[in-house]
Design a protein around this nucleic acid. Structure first.
Lengths: 230, 230, 230, 230
DNA sequence: GATGAATGAGGATTCATTCAT
DNA sequence: AATGAATGAATCCTCATTCAT
């Protein structure tokens, strides 16, 4: 009977998780469409096939539901992205994997991205202020890991001798804006096609290659900023 | 008497504008702290020294107040930024001016930036959906102007023969993320110091200059992506 | 100078009355269109060309304005109607004059009638409860005067030996409903054309004349109610 | 279980209707006392033993509550009245039944009558303008049915060859005013006692029967209007 | 006297959360 | 365990009235 109860409990447990996940999935869509305040517990209940009271068996309240939803997804997202990165060896392949997986994630989780982009970060209640901090923490960890990759690349002389933080800012910024632009505009083209674009710009920058063009000026700021003046 | 009344009306008019601006300023701070929904008209009234009813002489409602606040500031922001750009002649100075003025604007309008970053874009009501579209429109216009600058740079051979849109995405992305990172982190360092960082990364990219290092491979993707593998 | 001031005061007085009347006239239209609550002091001010504060020189508040408006008009109405009646000598001419002047008054004061018909009589505040009583009082006086006319008619054997109150109820009811029907329906036909209709029905009733038709049954209820059964 | 749930649902349904009716009943009293605007949702909630929010399970808002209240009652009223009429065969009995049931309805639904008499018909909002039209529509239907009865009476030679509309106006007018007078005055006497009064006046009019009195003049307006002058 | 800006009480409505069934 | 009816605090907005200018 111990075995039996154990099995029963396990099944219950599994079922519990399953239902919880289902609620989160439906809520994700609703929050993405309407934002936190515009979405009501009644709508979430309706949409997920539960009763209003039933939701409270899985979550202690609306804020917790929202926080858990966002945090779970944020962690999954960064894990998935960094997982792809860690499978690679060379710095360049890592960076390429980073861009690819970032883009793939948006493309496959549009609702979550819309939710995240539309997330009102200045929320006043304690629970949601906390959420904001947690999201930022995860983001910071993500940045740190990227800095690690880039720092390694610098040591390997694949990247220039700049502050890893600066390189990370640029890389993340370019990736983030491509994602934003894609989300905000009519999705004619796939984001995945832009991977090479991003890599090209991140690695080689916007200026024509040295030695080509009016003359060679050596690396550095001076060249970059005054080249045209000549 | 005409003169007298005219003067009076002008004074009233000026005072009206002044008070309205004052309300907006206070509201900006509150919205930045708490978001749209968490901020009440009563708080705005309290904070700006008006009665609740008084606010309605200046704005037809909370949504209008918020929308006007955001749109006025967004337009001012882009105008100020692009104004600085247009004073420059060379492409490189234009781009440098763009970065500088972007950064300066954030530094001088922290509250507004926090508001904009925390702006919940998934708001359901007609008025706020409209606001979202207007913000995006202004943003698109801004991007288009930057594309113009970059397109010119391409013609002048100061920038590589890439799609202006791609260059713009990269530049805006890097700028935006620097701003975001600065807003979100303890503001030890000034953002203005980072201008050269951004320019360096945007123009020259993350890879070491060609012709320096293990060998020269000519420009192009191949080099960029496989250099390390060698 | 006494004379002078007296003249001045008189002029002021006249002007005061004139302005007051003008306000009431404009307010009448607004109240007729929108009812008491839907009409704001600001609208009345706007419509009558006064400032909001200015209205309070003539009336101590909205309820008083409304009450005065209604009571003055109600009294004028009944006075005008009964004035026409009193000019007549014979009972029948008096009754005819009553109908005519009732109808004429509606036709010439549609706004006021709409106001009166739309008047919410169950108002809770002391001032408006009082108004309701006053209107009823005037109405009762009007009914009493009509009863007087009708009582006289009974004595003169021009009217049947019924209770004057009953005759009055019938007459007033018929008149009132004609007015109501006319106000509520597309005003194709003029109400004045209906005067003879009303008189015919009031005097002679709906049943065919005795002695004409299947047989004579003598006056009285029996005939009226069982005639058809035969 | 189907049976069980079905029973349960039915019980719920019945209870829902019951509570809804209870709210309407209490609201009727309050609206009758204070009119639409003076009555607050809080009062209705208090009076009917619900919480404020609870009312919104039954009605989508105050206007809907009011509209439903009025329309349901208006329809019931006319149905009940005309139901009594339709049970009769002869025109005279029909008319008598009409008067009786009109009077009975007022006597048994004083609150509703007060509400209807005090109903402010000039309400500005869309919902209440609509209500006004609906009330008028029902009234028009009622008038049309009465015209039908009277038209039939004309064909049966029980009523004079006048326009059915005119006869209807007179009958309805007399009935309505008796009701109004009764509602507005201290209710010493019962309205039902007045039925014969009304019928006598409607059928035979106010003038003495022809052939009785100073002389016989034959039927027609001339007699009616100039009799006294002779 | 005249103005109209300012006040703020008051009311309809929403919705997260609870809890009796 | 599950339900969903009930609660009532919280919020936006209106507008009669006042009063400084």
């Amino acid at each position: 009977m111990t075995l039996h109860s154990a099995g029963k409990r396990q099944r219950k447990e599994r079922e519990f998780r399953f239902r919880r996940a289902e609620i989160l999935e439906r809520a994700e869509k609703l929050f993405a469409d309407g934002g936190f305040h515009e979405t009501t517990m009644a709508e979430i209940a309706e949409s997920s096939g539960f009763s209003i009271g039933g939701l409270y068996r899985f979550f202690s309240g609306k804020e917790q539901l929202y926080s858990i939803l966002v945090m779970e997804k944020v962690r999954l997202m960064y894990d998935e992205i960094m997982g792809a990165v860690e499978h690679e060896e060379s710095t360049e392949r890592k960076i390429r994997a980073l861009v690819i997986s970032h883009f793939a994630y948006v493309e496959h989780h549009i609702d979550f991205y819309r939710l995240l982009v539309g997330h009102e970060s200045g929320l006043r209640t304690a629970g949601l202020r906390n959420l904001r901090e947690q999201i930022l923490d995860e983001h910071r960890k993500h940045v740190a890991r990227i800095e690690g990759v880039l720092g390694e690349g610098i040591q390997r002389r694949v990247l220039r001798q700049l502050a890893p933080r600066s390189l990370a800012n640029a890389l993340i910024g370019i990736i983030a804006y491509y994602k934003f632009a894609w989300i905000m505009n009519p999705h004619g083209e796939s984001l995945s096609e832009k991977v090479d674009d991003v890599l090209e710009l991140f690695f080689r920058g916007a200026a024509p290659a040295a030695g080509i063009g009016p003359g060679f000026h050596g690396p550095g700021k001076e060249r970059t900023l005054h080249q045209e003046a000549e």
